[in-house]
């Protein structure tokens, strides 16, 4: 069997040059400040304590949560429970095939995801233990981290782990001076700056902020405003999904 390293990708199409038309329309027909349609579904897996599947345009993420349970990694005593995240992208999730084995950007995503969720989880309710959040990106169509954060928060809620509030996340790409909400992979490729915001909408607290590129204060304010609006919109969808999932579970119990 030949070694995997000896093959080259086959990619006839390059990414589109212009992602916004002169009339402010994006490639998929959205306006600059429009979200992709989101499909959020808690309790997608049977073995995990809590799980969720989220689909935003072409970004598909599956999250499974285990715990509270004993931590496999840490051995030191801790009064607060630990939140351990592991993010992986499937080998076929991106345009170019990824090798098996964790890469540096997956480690970074895991760290950013953990920070985004830690503030919301009531960690004092499971001292000495940990919760494991396993996230698999099945298809990477842009804004993977934002979808992962929202899905993970839903999965934690689905697992019945005490939380102060749900966490929703939203990102903005700046392309040729214009701010695009919820960018696709093609749009993010052409960006010269990006802002990712994760927040607890009811508590109005920011749990994660990741900014790249050069920003003036005024533009930063604008981008943050846009993200916050997106987070609030997503919050309504998330709560609805969680509520209807709970109703379904209760109805099933009653029949039995």
């Amino acid at each position: 069997m030949a070694r995997r390293d000896t093959s080259v990708p086959y990619q006839p199409q390059s990414r589109p040059e212009a992602v916004v038309s002169d009339t402010g329309e994006r490639l998929d027909g959205r306006g600059l400040e429009e979200f992709r349609s989101a499909f959020l579904s808690p309790h997608a897996l049977s073995q995990a304590a809590g799980s969720a599947y989220a689909e935003c345009g072409k970004t598909k993420v599956m999250v499974g949560v285990y715990g509270p349970r004993q931590s496999a990694r840490a051995t030191a005593f801790s009064e607060q429970g630990r939140v351990q995240c592991d993010v992986k992208l499937a080998s076929f999730a991106t345009r170019q095939r990824r090798r098996f084995g964790q890469s540096t950007d997956e480690r970074e995503l895991s760290g950013l995801l953990a920070t985004a969720l830690e503030a919301a989880v009531l960690r004092h309710t499971f001292p000495k233990s940990c919760i494991d959040i396993y996230c698999l990106v099945l298809e990477s169509g842009g804004s993977e981290l934002t979808v992962a954060i929202t899905a993970a928060a839903m999965a934690i809620a689905d697992a019945g782990i005490a939380m102060a509030d749900v966490v929703t996340a939203c990102s903005v790409s700046r392309v040729a001076g214009q701010l695009l909400l919820d960018p696709t992979a093609d749009e993010a490729f052409r960006e010269d700056g990006s802002v990712l915001l994760a927040m607890m909408p009811a508590a109005n607290l920011v749990t994660q902020l990741v900014v790249t590129g050069e920003w003036s204060s005024a533009q930063m304010k604008q981008a943050l405003c846009l993200c916050m609006g997106g987070c609030l919109q997503l919050d309504a969808v998330t709560r609805k999904a969680l509520a209807s999932s709970e109703e379904q579970a209760l109805a099933a119990m009653r029949i039995e």
């Binding site: 073995q47 995990a48 599956m62 499974g64 285990y66 349970r69 496999a72 592991d86 964790q102 396993y134």
Partner: peptide
């Protein structure tokens, strides 16, 4: 690959 979410016995890596 058995994704770590598939079963309580699985661990990443």
């Amino acid at each position: 690959e058995m994704a770590p979410m598939c079963s309580p016995d699985m661990r990443p890596g």
